[in-house]
Amino acid sequence: MKVEYKLFTVLAVFCLGVGIWYGIWTEWKEPVGAVGLFLTFGLCAMIGGFIWWTSRKLGARPDDDLDGEISDVEGDYGFFSPHSWWPLFLAASGALVFLGLAVGWWLVILGMPLLAISTVGWVFEYFRGENAI
């Protein structure tokens, strides 16, 4: 995890420097940009600190070995359904709900039950029939 916490540390330092530069450039009269950059600094620092703290407890991964091979990282990444239609229905109903935020609340009300049904269908896709747990 050395790469991850170093990446977030560099991003945090960059956002802090740009936030200070932005504040000086605008003479602190436009606070939204500087506050946004300082909040981004805080978020990157928290994530980098958490990853650093976790990496101390876990030790080195195969990714951290400079002489490591690609085969050191291979393994099972999980099960992904090859023939599922639920993600398509979930995306369509989600698009309908978000379109309703721009068009009108009646479309949100129409899309919410479809979004709930497609979410439940995708989550519990393999909990029916002979594949049930």
Rank of each mutant, 00 (worst) to 15 (best):
V13Q: 04
F124P: 04
V3W: 15
H83W: 03
K2E: 10
P62Q: 14
G78N: 05
I20A: 10
G59R: 15
F38N: 01
D76H: 08
L37I: 02
L58A: 13
A95V: 10
T26N: 14
Y126M: 09
T40L: 04
P87R: 06
V3G: 14
M112T: 14
H83M: 05
M1V: 12
D65F: 06
W21I: 08
Y5R: 10
R56H: 04
G19Y: 03
L99E: 02
F127C: 11
E27S: 12
G100C: 01
L66N: 07
G36N: 02
L11I: 01
M1N: 15
Y5I: 06
G111E: 02
S84T: 07
A116K: 14
D63V: 07
T54E: 15
L96R: 10
L66H: 03
D72G: 01
I51W: 03
P87M: 11
A60P: 12
V35G: 12
F14C: 09
T54I: 15
A92S: 07
V123N: 04
W106A: 09
T40V: 02
G129Q: 05
V10D: 11
L37D: 00
A116F: 13
E69Q: 10
K2Q: 14
L7G: 03
G68K: 05
A34K: 03
G94T: 11
A102L: 10
E69H: 10
D64H: 12
K6V: 07
L11A: 05
G75K: 07
F89K: 07
K57W: 07
W25H: 10
G111I: 01
G100F: 02
E30Y: 14
W122V: 01
T26M: 11
W105T: 13
W52P: 00
T26L: 09
W53N: 12
I20H: 10
S84A: 03
P113D: 06
C15T: 05
F89R: 02
I117K: 00
G23D: 11
G75H: 01
L37G: 00
R56P: 04
G36I: 01
L58S: 13
